[in-house]
Write a protein that binds this DNA or RNA. Structure first.
Lengths: 196, 196
DNA sequence: ACGACGCTAGACGGATCTGTCTAAATAAGC
DNA sequence: GCTTATTTAGACAGATCCGTCTAGCGTCGT
């Protein structure tokens, strides 16, 4: 067993970190194995010792992205108790994401853009989307008014819109626009700001 | 001079057509020159006779996409005279786009996802986005109520959201969701359905 | 009839990319 | 201390990909 607090991170971890940086910033197809191992400061053999191949590395890259993002969103939501506030919190988390100077859009949208129909990327994107939908459907159900399914659909659309606009225009304020629109929708669905 | 109504289309046209199909459906990086000429039924020399290189072909591919889409949207808008109806028409055109069985998202979003910062794709995407923004800003200005800039921002976000959701979920109904939300926003901005 | 233009077929070079393999050094566990 | 797991450096094979080049065929304008 490797000690949990060892001085240098394991080769696998460094590879995954390097892959995360490069794949996200430059695209999966664009970045070759050699770039990854060079940045990780690792021998090529180490990569094929820890991963079955590039596809396997890509899968891990996307799985980790999914996990990290789900954590962050869940944390943002759970800071609030009211259904309305919990919904709006998602767009605030998006705002903090967009504010990062190296933001380059949703890893899963980007992966889908360069993915073949049955590729690893496509499958990872499908699971990610399922998560997005259950997330908003649960949040929409909690408000207890109107049609949750339709509300969730609209919230997803605002989520996707914020992500896409922020990427295409390098416009972090898209998160606020989405939030404002979500508020308007909730108002019209009869969910007031604070239950008195 | 070649006669304008010749039996077979010119090599350049066939190449551009093949590139359009392949680049859009499978991604620009994924598709090689050899695939393009094979599908076009053309010799490799013809490609480099008509185009300076792959980048040049990519540029033409994106420029054509831009032109075709702008035509289609403008036609949809110009079928109406009232500012509100002209705005909503955009989302209806999106609906017809999403309904196409081979819809695979916005060519410019996909290109951006796999593009390097200063690439041909990035530049084409920038011009495309400028067009999108002036489109909605003009439409928003025509309603003459509230802040056109803020209205335009929201409409762009709904546009992007519809496009992204439709692609990721293969959900053509995203166009209707976006349209419904746009109506709600216009109502709240004091733009009624029909000026009485 | 002749020359310019558009196009063909395919070989070729050089670069790059994924993955394998060898041989040996280092670290960890028992 | 001995064994097993992890890691290294780099050569190598096979595929693919972009672009060039040669040699030649057909068509059209003049």
């Amino acid at each position: 067993m490797t000690r949990p607090e060892q001085r240098r991170r394991t080769a696998k971890q460094r590879i995954l970190q390097a892959a995360d940086d490069l794949f996200y910033n430059e695209g999966i197809h664009t970045v070759g194995i050699d770039r990854v191992i060079a940045r990780a400061g690792v021998a090529k053999g180490s990569l094929y010792y820890s991963f079955a191949g590039k596809d396997d590395l890509v899968r891990d890259y996307l799985t980790h992205r999914h996990g990290k993002w789900a954590e962050r969103v869940t944390a943002g939501i759970d800071a609030h108790t009211e259904p309305r506030a919990r919904i709006l919190a998602v767009y605030d988390v998006l705002g903090t994401l967009f504010a990062q100077p190296d933001y380059r859009g949703c890893a899963f949208m980007n992966a889908t853009a360069e993915a073949a129909p049955d590729s690893v990327e496509a499958h990872a994107a499908t699971t990610f989307r399922a998560w997005v939908h259950t997330l908003f459907l649960d949040l929409a159900t909690d408000v207890g008014t109107g049609d949750p399914k339709q509300l969730a659909e609209t919230l997803v659309l605002l989520y996707d819109g914020a992500v896409a606009t922020a990427q295409m225009d390098k416009a972090p304020e898209a998160a606020r626009t989405a939030r404002r629109t979500a508020e308007l929708i909730l108002d019209n669905a009869g969910i007031p700001s604070a239950s008195a």
